[in-house]
Simulated assay, not measured.
Amino acid sequence: MIDIPARMVGLDWGTTSCRAYLLGEDGTVLDRRLDGRGVLALSRSGENRTAAFEQELDDLCGEWLRSAPGLPLVACGMVGSNQGWAEAEYRHLPVDLTERPESLTEVPTPLGPLFIIPGLFKDGTAGSPSDHPDVIRGEETQVLGTLPSGTGDTAAGTGDAADDGAGSPAVVVLPGTHTKWLRLEGTRVSDFVTTMTGELFGLVMQHSIVARLAEEPQAPDLDAFDRGLDVAFAATEPVPAAPTDVATSLFSARTLVMAGELEPTAVKDYVSGLMIGAEVERFAHLWIGEQDIAGGRITICANAQLGGRYARALERAGIASDLAPEDAVVAGLWRTALALGLIDKEDS
């Protein structure tokens, strides 16, 4: 039974998971479901895709919506990709996150219409060997949720307008299956880059020769993680002892076990250190400039365990960081619903 009036349901529906939130006044989380299946599982389930997504939505939110029918349903993430439920539009960079999206993609469901937030698209530079087109789905909503309280009121058409979205450059990293490094100028996204570290880690630990010697640890082994960082950051030494690119160093996760120098239960955390370290080391030297970190700190949007690993790697690179609230996406979903008039500000 819902004691506090519910106002909306928000969904962070990504590649590997779906998290659903029942929100009350001012975006307060009344209930949550964090174990939903992601886009990959649903699109490969063998079921009719629409039926698979409808069933997952019902499993996660059906009880809430039958108790309080008519609540707005707002989703962000890969659910709006061409692999998801329905393809939503993109907004092209630069994008001020506090500006209203022109529209949301509306998907009819048995529980009521589901509104999918548009992602962001970077056009890149034609013919460039490094500045490629890139996309974001879901992370834009997380970043909106990290902005100072009240920032989103401008998007909702209330309060004072922001200057013009400009401000001191800042960097936000959003670790996950596909990690995003995002450059933010005030409330405006000016650039971002995707790395597949999370997905590659999963593939290595499930399907590679390295995985055959690995055993599941009973608890995180941060010493093994730091050892992986040591290898990744050896590339910054004046004369590295050996090539330290991640494709070369990964094989050491096998040979160290064979030599008795690494426990099989430490392999997973060692590989995590290798891969996160290689990613952070590269971005620290090639993408993050002096102007990004002078007088400021990088913001990490992730759960405490994964965010803590990125913080350790950034510290190794001499870069300070702060961990955003874990439910930042909830604030972003709420602000977007306000901006589109799905929730009346006067009643919230």
Rank of each mutant, 00 (worst) to 15 (best):
T197R: 00
G198K: 01
G198F: 04
E199K: 01
L200D: 07
F201N: 08
G202Q: 07
L203R: 01
L203F: 02
M205L: 11
Q206C: 08
Q206T: 15
H207V: 08
H207K: 12
S208I: 09
I209M: 12
A211H: 04
R212H: 12
L213D: 14
L213E: 15
L213S: 15
A214T: 14
E215L: 14
P217N: 00
Q218K: 14
A219Y: 13
D221C: 09
A224K: 08
F225P: 05
F225H: 02
F225V: 05
D226E: 14
D226N: 13
R227D: 11
G228Y: 06
G228W: 05
L229G: 09
L229H: 04
D230T: 11
V231L: 08
V231C: 05
A234F: 03
A234K: 03
A235C: 05
A235M: 03
T236V: 12
E237M: 15
E237Y: 11
E237L: 15
V239R: 12
P240E: 04
A241S: 13
P243C: 13
T244G: 08
T244E: 07
A247V: 15
A247T: 15
T248H: 13
S249M: 10
L250R: 06
S252C: 10
S252P: 14
A253Q: 02
L256V: 04
V257S: 01
V257D: 06
M258N: 09
L262C: 03
L262A: 04
E263M: 10
T265Q: 09
A266Y: 00
K268D: 11
D269K: 00
D269G: 02
Y270R: 07
V271L: 04
V271P: 15
S272C: 07
S272V: 09
S272L: 06
G273Q: 05
G273T: 05
L274G: 07
M275H: 10
G277N: 04
G277V: 04
E279K: 14
E281V: 11
R282H: 13
F283Q: 08
A284F: 06
W287A: 10
I288M: 09
Q291R: 10
A294K: 07
A294H: 02
A294C: 02
G295P: 00
G296I: 00
R297G: 00
R297I: 01
T299Q: 08
C301F: 06
A302W: 04
A302F: 05
N303D: 14
N303Q: 05
N303S: 13
